[in-house]
């Protein structure tokens, strides 16, 4: 897997983007694009990231994001970008 989508959903508060970005940086995962909105105090973000330079394996990376999500009260997922391309692009 090279490009992935990281989805982050939860109650809005200060420092969500900082916390997620810091973790991506720690694993040498490069951010290619960020889309983020807040609707009625509900924070949603998707990041397009490049996993080709990642310094760990996918399972460890997903576990770290999940742990961060639990600590911050957020739901964080990682998905191969191919899934979304398959569903939404002909």
């Amino acid at each position: 897997m090279k490009n992935a989508i990281v989805s982050v959903v939860g109650q809005d508060k200060v420092g969500i983007i900082a916390a997620v970005s810091a973790l991506l940086s720690q694993y040498e995962v490069n951010i290619l694009d960020i889309r983020q909105t807040v609707m009625e105090e509900y924070f949603t973000m998707m990041m397009q990231v490049d996993l080709s330079g990642m310094n760990t394996n996918l399972t460890a990376f997903k576990d770290a994001l999940r742990a961060l999500g639990e600590a911050q009260g957020l739901s964080i997922g990682v998905y191969d970008e191919g899934l979304f391309n398959a569903m939404h692009r002909v």
């Binding site: 989508i5 989805s7 959903v9 889309r35 909105t37 949603t44 998707m46 997922g77 998905y79 899934l83 979304f84 569903m87 939404h88």
Partner: peptide, 8 residues
């Protein structure tokens, strides 16, 4: 973003 959350 809409497409991503649609799939999720």
């Amino acid at each position: 973003q809409h497409e991503v959350f649609d799939t999720l």
